[in-house]
Amino acid sequence: MNIISCFKVVPDEQDITIKPNRDISFEKAPMTISAYDLNCIEAGAQLAEAFEGNLIGVSIGAKKIDDSKLKKNVLSRGPESILMVADDFLEDLDTYQTANALKAAIQKVGEFDLILCGEGSADLYAQQVGAQLGQLLNVPVINSVNKIALMEGKVIVERSLEDEVETIEIPLPAVISVTSDINLPRIPSMKQILAAGKKSATILSALDVGIGDFGATLQVIETKAPEQKERKKDIIQGDSDEAIKSFITKINKVLK
């Protein structure tokens, strides 16, 4: 049983800053595992542990994703090994390019039974890579999965959709995008962190996996912090009966 958990390396959202011209700055943001992919890695780890499978973490991106601490972080969460395609030419990809690059990386892994993706990436959250990857690999693909039961040659998954919960049977190999409800990602213990340093990570270049020139399918025109809408900011201090009364007078006009 070969399981692949795909993960994206993103700038830590908490440390993204906004410049006065509303540009976004990543200067202070360290690279980290995309939050939704922690659920994807955990789902893979639980399946691999239950079925004595082999879990591989796969990621693609710029050279800086090949970071020793980040790799240990991933490996402390269950995968036996990591395969990364790290090349500066793989920075800021759109979802079609990402799915193509992942496909090329996964073909280096060889045989696989199950590929897991997160619900979306923490930075762009397009929720598309799983769908596109499945289509490109020409295998069954499903999203919004919050339960996986692994069986011989197939999986039975539960999907949580807007109005219904759907149970479906999918033949393997397949690509599955999991929700953030599927599990609570583990908190790596010292034992797991120490063990991570002894696991293997393979780092390849775009050339190694045969990714040639592929153009962007979406043209990014700009990325800016939203302009704040002007608000009245008529704030009353304190909750004395009088203050509440004057507050009600003000909002009554709006609520009429």
Partner: peptide
């Protein structure tokens, strides 16, 4: 932008060698 439709959109985009502008 429902979950089913996002999956369909992604697969179609892969077929037409493009990406979806989502949400």
């Amino acid at each position: 932008p429902s979950k089913r439709c996002k999956l369909i959109a992604g697969r179609l985009a892969a077929i037409f060698e493009t990406s979806v502008m989502t949400d």
